[in-house]
Design a binder for these strands. Structure first.
Lengths: 225, 225
DNA sequence: GGCGGCTTTTACGCGTTCTTGAGGCCGGGG
DNA sequence: CCCCGGCCTCAAGAACGCGTAAAAGCCGCC
């Protein structure tokens, strides 16, 4: 499970983030000032920090420095200041990203996913394919959804792997059957229906309305990011 | 010297970036469309890519996908589109950052420094691999548990070594058999069951519920830290 | 030769995964 | 309107792969 530390002195922002992040399966910690933020970060070892710069006690840049002293946790800065000098300062202090308030929740979540993915890739050194619902690590052969690992059987993985290596492209039924089941089974299109149903149950937010594992009737399947 | 690939179809933007980046000691490569960008990236192996999304030939998201297919180079997206759906799309496709035009050169440079710093933090492999239960010293070829040395037979060590060199990664049965027993025995998967049982008895706290030497049925084994 | 450590082989119970068939739904064409 | 092809869902038996244990084979060494 991926954990996020949210630091902001405005309770409504913390609340909004907590709700949105929890709903997506993240483990959320919070802090309302710089001092407690550093304490919580040491205690809880979050996977990523969302940090407001305008804190009551410590200057935001010093909070970044305080974190960077001992850790490389990704830091996403939130701030009302739009001038480039503020951005430059924060980024050079060690922040990974800078988002100006007011911000779109979608965008923040996407930047958060990017930060976590990058961090994961740093450990493994491997390319990772990300959608809004789940993450496929091709080299490690793991799929995570909202920070939780999803177990795939060999056949399921075979399908996901082919699709993830061809993001956005249509892959024919024949190609999938050939590569996963072998040349003897290129007409068993029923296999595909059964397995795509399983995969959607495991990976899609709403299995009945798939957003990523798309059927192209009569043609094949497509992996939408 | 850090090298940057700048991809944009507007010559004045490319020129401005080239001047600013060169002045700061970066090695600059350029491309004016998606196709040549992918070519230059393969050839030149840049340390970071600055990518305009509005290219004449290929959709920007597909360029990102094309790069992510084989590499984890940091990608900073430049775009005139400010709507959050565009940002979400690009970031989920694998971009590391998203900057809207018109942009401040200071800010872009700061984001670029942040991206490179992050990427550099990826360090080379440690000769010692540590788990919560035991320690594998690859240089000395020894395994210790609770300070006490655990004796491994040559075959056992062969397996542990391969797994410890690929922490977290799934290693196929075939690869293990091939590297330890040779190409003639790639189908003797029973060997693996016997030896993993032995290793778990020696290394795991609860051999019946392994936490580090994990079986992925039908695929292979995984060394979890 | 006998011994000890290591590897290979055999056998069995068990849980998971794969395959297969049946039924229902939907949209296009006759 | 009905039929039909293609798709989705569900369930159940078959097949497979895993863990475990124990015996048998193979060294090198005293």
């Amino acid at each position: 499970m991926t954990s996020v530390l949210v630091v902001d002195d405005e309770p409504q922002i913390v609340r909004a983030l907590r709700i949105n992040l929890s709903a997506r399966g993240y483990d959320v910690m919070t802090a309302y000032d710089g001092k407690s933020a550093l304490g919580v970060a040491v205690e809880g070892k979050p996977d990523v920090v969302v940090l407001d710069l305008g804190l009551p006690d410590i200057d935001g840049v010093d909070v970044i420095a305080g974190l960077r002293g001992w850790s490389t946790i990704p830091i996403i800065v939130l701030s009302a200041r739009t001038d480039s000098s503020a951005k430059v300062e924060a980024l050079d202090a060690g922040a990974d990203d800078y988002v100006t308030k007011p911000f779109g929740m979608d965008e923040l979540l996407a930047r958060l996913r990017a930060a976590v993915r990058r961090d994961l890739a740093r450990e493994t050194g491997d390319p990772v394919v990300t959608t809004s619902s789940f993450v496929v690590d091709l080299a490690v052969k793991k799929v995570r959804r909202d920070g939780r690992e999803v177990h795939l059987t060999p056949t399921e993985w075979g399908l996901v792997e082919i699709l993830a290596r061809n993001p956005g492209r249509l892959v024919s039924q024949k190609q999938l059957l050939q590569e996963v089941w072998g040349p003897m089974h290129v007409n068993e299109s029923q296999y595909l229906r059964v397995y795509f149903a399983q995969l959607r149950r495991k990976l899609e937010d709403d299995p009945a309305r798939p957003k990523h594992l798309i059927t192209e009737p009569g043609m094949g399947y497509r992996f939408e990011l």
